[in-house]
Design a protein around this nucleic acid. Structure first.
Lengths: 200, 200
DNA sequence: TTGCCGCGTGGCACCGGGTGTCATTAGCCT
DNA sequence: AGGCTAATGACACCCGGTGCCACGCGGCAA
């Protein structure tokens, strides 16, 4: 496969990153993450393998988009949360809001998340990304409950809410027509109420 | 570094696996997972690199011991659980019991878990191992609640209880003299009660 | 215009994890 | 003794990731 546009050295590239992401997503979705080499992705995007690794630290990073901005937004939402609201409620609300995408972005999100939650190598890698999210949440809970970020409860809230969110994403992926927000709210409702669906 | 015992080809090896695990654990703990090559581990254990990968599918697998047996025991505990007990309680109890180690095994467990939860590459890899655990738990919850393994609630229980268990392990690692069971019970108590520690 | 410089780029060599293949060797069975 | 099985080790290879260097474009100053 050859390049659509030949890259010009010395030029700021202007949209190269997005083009590489598209090529990566397409190839990974089509043939599977492990079956595609970084050489092929780079080639499809019209850059060299070496340059690919200047845009993305690892092969896996090419599917995450601007995840750092996502985490930053979550952090802002938590910082702006009403202190009168319960801590756990604020965390869940922030998760719901940060994942409130406009309709046009949903297909891309689906593609990303399908890869991340389906491909073993990407699922493993996700743990490293989600660790950043956990730290943000744990820090917030610690601050609100006058504890330390490394205490059991802040970490527990971070780990379990994130697990719930991930599970909601899985459910969303399985049902093409469902709304992500509904799954998230249902998952958090179960979690915060101690799984009432299991009472019998 | 040279071998303690030179391996004899054709002989069943008898304890080679355990020797490799020890060498790996020692080296990883001493110098860090990524800083040690599989060549060095193999050499320290007196085998070739190629043979190392016959005992362990990946470098990371050398720190997990017989994890499949661990998962199998959890599955048995769940199968033998009292059907009169609440589902969630059975899952938590099984987690506590499967992690009820005799004192002599605790230092080894600490070493393993410290590596797994501290080294980024191992933390990422852990996701793949824990996915097996999640499936076992989700299957049990689905069976008890007349649902499917892929439904939201079974997956949710599996993901959140496992997240709670992992968090308990982290707390245990931070406190040298604490009991793992105490952390697990406390984490599960918080989880199943909807985090009462956060009420204010 | 000429010459210099910064920077994105690509080529290349290298490292390390992981795999397929093949020859070697020992124990065992007949 | 001869043949079979199974564990091993050597070798070549693939691929992700990195360090290094040379190239070429645009911009800037003289």
């Amino acid at each position: 496969m050859t390049a659509i546009e030949t890259a010009v050295p010395g030029v700021p590239a202007e949209g190269t990153r997005a083009r590489v992401e598209r090529a990566a997503l397409d190839l990974f979705t089509l043939r599977g993450f492990e079956q595609v080499t970084t050489d092929e992705v780079a080639d499809a995007a019209g850059i060299s393998r070496r340059t690919f690794f200047r845009y993305f630290a690892t092969k896996a990073d090419a599917v995450w988009g601007d995840f750092a901005a996502h985490v930053a937004r979550l952090e802002e939402l938590l910082a702006d949360a009403d202190p009168a609201q319960p801590v756990l409620g604020s965390v869940c609300a922030a998760y719901v809001e940060v994942n409130d995408y406009v309709a046009a972005e949903l297909p891309l999100l689906r593609e990303r998340m399908r890869l991340i939650l389906t491909e073993p190598a990407l699922l493993a890698h996700s743990q490293l990304r989600y660790a950043e999210v956990d730290r943000v949440v744990a820090r917030y809970v610690a601050a609100r409950s006058a504890g330390r970020e490394t205490d059991l409860v802040p970490r527990l809230v971070a780990a379990t809410t994130r697990a719930a969110a991930t599970t909601a994403f899985q459910a969303w992926l399985r049902d093409e027509r469902s709304a992500l927000g509904d799954h998230l709210r249902q998952a958090f409702a179960e979690l915060t109420a101690g799984f009432p669906a299991l009472l019998r």
